[in-house]
Design a protein around this nucleic acid. Structure first.
Lengths: 258, 258
DNA sequence: CAGTGGTCTAGACCACACT
DNA sequence: GTGTGGTCTAGACCACTGC
């Protein structure tokens, strides 16, 4: 690993327009990432120290440090001075519900405490075309469909449809979805080894369908926030499609631009 | 600057519970920030090289580098290999309309090209209580109020009310708001030396008031996205309150979670 | 070519956590 | 005290830009 290697050597003439120089620390980052993907260290666990990794990869500590810096900035690992570097997890207190941007309008911020969950449905079925496309499956592959309501302070506030690739979530049950204490994504890590790393959301204002309005116990004329989320694991592999309807008369979606 | 200085030295006994150790590079970052705030280098301009800053502050290049790294990650400066480090600007091509998260549903992504702007109103007035609070002004201080419509491909899509502190935006006119080519925030930088650095948004689904629906030429029963933005300059000083109504039948608000 | 940011190294020391 | 991540330094070399 003493040669930074200009990536693939450009054999002779054409093909690659840009040789794409890849710095050493990026290669190290890739190697650590492989370990994370392969489950060499599981969410919440300690990864080897910078010194250890430096020795393993035959590079200086500083190079490993820069690699880990990037992983930390992408929320894939978490550093703790004096203790070590840990694989990030949705179960960690600090970042719980990292992807939930709906907040109560006023009063006690963490008035949520525990959101009540009602599972309305949990079935395996053949993926419709749009779902299959979002999850990069073939139309007709099986997916798990979960429909649930989240209640804050006893009030139904979110109605969500969740689709998951069937092959990765064999045996997921309504019981499991409802009984697990803590973030659903933490349960996915624990029971299925699937870690959600990032997500994209498309947001719209809509009116509810009759059944949807009924479940949320609101009028059909009340505008609701429609949030369509695609969540990804490592390597930008889509692993979840989620369509949510949020009440925004008592809550709001908060976003920080920078 | 050869002594990293444990921040304020704790004189004798109590007072500060945490001495709050401040690393050298943070202090350097603060010094560079002061230069940015003071306008020593204006948006788009080149700041001194890492070597120069290292010499000026009597630290090593690596320390300056780490300071600038943080400023770059906060989008306050932009590094360009071989050229130097530049003060970030909303006029830069790469990051134009950084804060506008509304995107057309399909087709040509940059079908926007130039959004047409219609200024409906531009007046100075005494700040109502809620506006004053958001802008950290005293109730009764003067503010500039701008109301405008943005049209994409000829269709009115966004109706916005903008409030700005009167003292910082003396002489802002409707003419100025409508004639400037490019992002409004770029005009603010150029004409008023005000650079928006970050913003918070609160998003809701709402129904339009009669007049609002009329301006957007939609039915009063069409749900719209309500986006309330507070934008900040350096040091978290609020400099703009913006209340927008977005059509989301042809566009959507896109958000990346990570 | 010289100047800029970008990478990599090696070593010293500091702050923090555990034991 | 030992081991971890965090800071700081000094120097070498690489990649990119523009003269």
């Amino acid at each position: 690993m003493s040669t930074p290697s200009t990536s693939a050597s450009d054999p002779a003439g054409a093909s690659t327009p840009t040789p794409a120089f890849s710095p050493l620390y990026q290669q190290i980052k890739g190697l650590i990432l492989q370990g994370l993907e392969a489950g060499e260290w599981r969410p919440g666990e300690l990864i080897p120290s910078e010194m250890e990794l430096a020795a393993r990869f035959k590079v200086s500590q500083g190079t490993v440090r820069k690699a880990i810096d990037e992983l930390a900035s992408e929320n894939l690992v978490m550093r703790r001075q004096g203790k070590g570097t840990f694989v990030a997890t949705h179960a960690a207190q600090h970042v719980q519900y990292r992807f939930l941007k709906l907040h109560p309008d006023a009063g006690n911020q963490q008035g949520e405490g525990r959101a009540e969950r009602h599972i309305l449905e949990c079935r395996r079925l053949r993926a419709p075309a749009d779902i299959a496309r979002a999850l990069a499956l073939r139309s007709g592959d099986t997916v798990v469909h979960v429909r649930r309501v989240l209640l804050f302070a006893g009030t139904p506030t979110i109605l969500e449809d969740i689709w998951l690739p069937g092959h990765a979530f064999k045996g997921l049950t309504a019981e499991q979805m409802s009984s697990y204490q803590g973030p659903t994504y933490a349960m996915f890590e624990l029971d299925y080894g699937v870690r959600m790393v990032r997500a994209d959301e498309k947001i719209r204002a809509v009116l509810a369908q009759a059944e949807q309005a009924e479940v949320l116990r609101v009028s059909q004329t009340m505008p609701l926030l429609s949030v369509e989320r695609t969540a990804f694991t490592y390597n930008d592999v889509p692993m979840e499609l989620r369509r949510g309807l949020y009440r925004t008369d008592t809550h709001h979606y908060r976003n920080a631009l920078s």
